[in-house]
Amino acid sequence: MMKKMLSAVLVLAMVLSFAGCAGGKKEDAKEDQPSSDGNYEIAIVPKDTVNDWFQCIAQGGEKFGKEKGCTVYMKGGSSADASLQIEVIEDIIASGVDAICVVPNDIDALESVLKKAQDAGIVVVTHEASTQQNTEYDLEAFDNAEFGATIMDSLASQMGEEGQYCVMVGSLTNGSHNEWADGGIARQEEAYPNMELVGDRIEIKDNSETAYEKAKEMLKTYPDLKGFFGTATQCVPGVARAIEELGLVGKVSLCGMCMPSSAGEYIERGTIENIVAWDPYEVGYAMSSLAYNILSGEEIKEGIDLGAKGYESMTIINDKVMIGSGFLEINKDNLSEYKF
């Protein structure tokens, strides 16, 4: 009886003393904040740390940090889970960084923790989250509708501007994939009347195996299918493999967003002509640079130069979304230039 009570008291005392002993430190922590010498601490929080894409973003950020003499580093969860991401952001807020650059797993889920960050005086910058409320600016590599239209232009020219095509997305709930698809379909309807969209948007669950199987199914269901419009980065390798296996190289075209590292072999073999993308190094650099500019009190205005390729002259929409020209078309000729 006594033992149990004592142990309960012990646990409680321990917990309370943590909260208590910390009270006095509060002022000190606040004094650390101003650091107006430009030696800021900027944390990048990716969807997860396993994906190569985010490693590249981190490297871009670190490069910026070295150039400006400030600390830029990545902290993230081990899987793309909104709850884990919130935990990481909580810890980072508590550790008193100056700015947080986030690529959200889930825009809604992050609103309240990002508000907490802003309330604590931390600068928040997001990427691929054009509807995020609690952020200083959301940085976009390009206008999503235009990006989709460009994919369509490339696909149309490969298809000779005629024939059936279908659209693949990572998931029906993915914001940017569906915005690209909307933009692409709108372009086709307005500029390529001889092309025809068949089937619903195909969900590939961000999985290239699924993309491969769905592509085979589509080619069976629609024997005249001539083109694939890809959005998720897994579309291209999956569909390209199906095209090769069915001996349809040159007969069926494919264009979509992808990373050179996973689409490179298909471009070299000539299965596909090109892919479109944006460079994660530059994103990491540009996000850090934007956060740095806000911290050092620079005026953020239309046309601001973030010092990264494709982010030299930014367009600002609704005071919140910042759009660059980070669009890349990658084909046989420039494939070796990109290392992501």
Binding site: F18, A19, G23, K25, K26, D28, E90, D91, I93, A94
Partner: peptide, 28 residues
């Protein structure tokens, strides 16, 4: 628990031993 706490508190007192961090951990 005490050892872990003390070790971290010793290495990063300016970040770990703040009321912000304690509250944030208690909420997590």
């Amino acid at each position: 628990a005490v050892i872990v706490f003390a070790a971290v508190a010793f290495m990063k007192p300016e970040k770990f031993l703040t009321s912000e961090n304690m509250l944030s951990m208690l909420a997590q």
